[in-house]
Design a protein around this nucleic acid. Structure first.
Length: 217
DNA sequence: CACCCGATTATCT
DNA sequence: GATAATCGGGTGT
């Protein structure tokens, strides 16, 4: 079988382009489970782009530190950080050659495979509440600090991304949420469907109210 | 569904 | 010592 894993070149482009194009792709998490490989997977339905010195909301804004170092490396590596004393957030480094740092926050996933295991990790049963938020999806997919620095373009990795063959959807953008600075950029990307003159936002995204003010991109 | 609030700790100044 | 790219539970509409 020919692998359709996303390559390094996909991630070494403008951070916003990568954030938009990650919407609709498959995230795959390989787990060792009682001498078998269990694959958890789902469709990325929400992302946010974080830049460098021009983006006050980005961890990279202050320059290179121990925590944010992955954002300054090559594209396609996992950047994990721990926040609010409770949650891990899952990002992938991405930036073009002209920009020295950048990453995409994966904010929500529509679960596809391994749903029963996700329910156990989350200790929740509602499908809509399994991975519809950045802290929720790391829990559902059992992604944590040990994955920081992993290469998502390597098929042997615990975490990687795959092309989606049936991508007959559109992507919309809104302002980023959950931040205090640089709140005006439309750098949050959501999966949607267009039907006649109406647009329907994917129901596994993380909020409701913040999704009203959107643009088609 | 909207709004409010408390929990809890790694990271950086 | 302050802050935070969040979540879940509570209350009210």
């Amino acid at each position: 079988m020919i692998s359709n894993i996303l390559k390094r070149s996909f991630f070494e482009r403008d951070t916003c382009i990568v954030a938009k194009e990650l919407v609709g792709k498959y995230l795959v998490r390989k787990l060792q489970r009682e001498e078998k490989i269990l694959k958890l997977s789902g469709i990325i339905v929400e992302t946010e782009a974080y830049g460098y010195i021009d983006d006050k909301a980005s961890h990279a804004f202050i320059g290179l530190t121990k925590r944010n170092s992955v954002m300054f490396g090559r594209g396609g590596f996992v950047y994990i950080y721990f926040t609010y004393g409770n949650h891990y957030c899952f990002n992938i480094s991405a930036h073009g050659p002209a920009m020295n740092a950048g990453a995409i926050l994966i904010r929500a996933i529509e679960p596809v495979n391994g749903i029963e295991q996700m329910k156990k990790f989350r200790n929740k049963n509602e499908l809509l509440n399994l991975a519809s938020g950045p802290g929720k999806l790391t829990q559902a997919f059992s992604i944590n600090a040990k994955h920081n620095g992993n290469d998502v373009t390597n098929y042997n990795s615990d975490v990687y991304l795959e092309e989606n063959q049936s991508q007959a959807s559109i992507v919309i953008c809104t302002k980023r949420i959950g931040i205090r600075k640089d709140i005006e950029r439309y750098w949050r990307f959501l999966l949607a469907e267009k039907e006649r003159n109406s647009i329907y936002i994917n129901k596994y995204v993380s909020k409701k109210k913040e999704n009203q003010d959107y643009k088609i991109c």
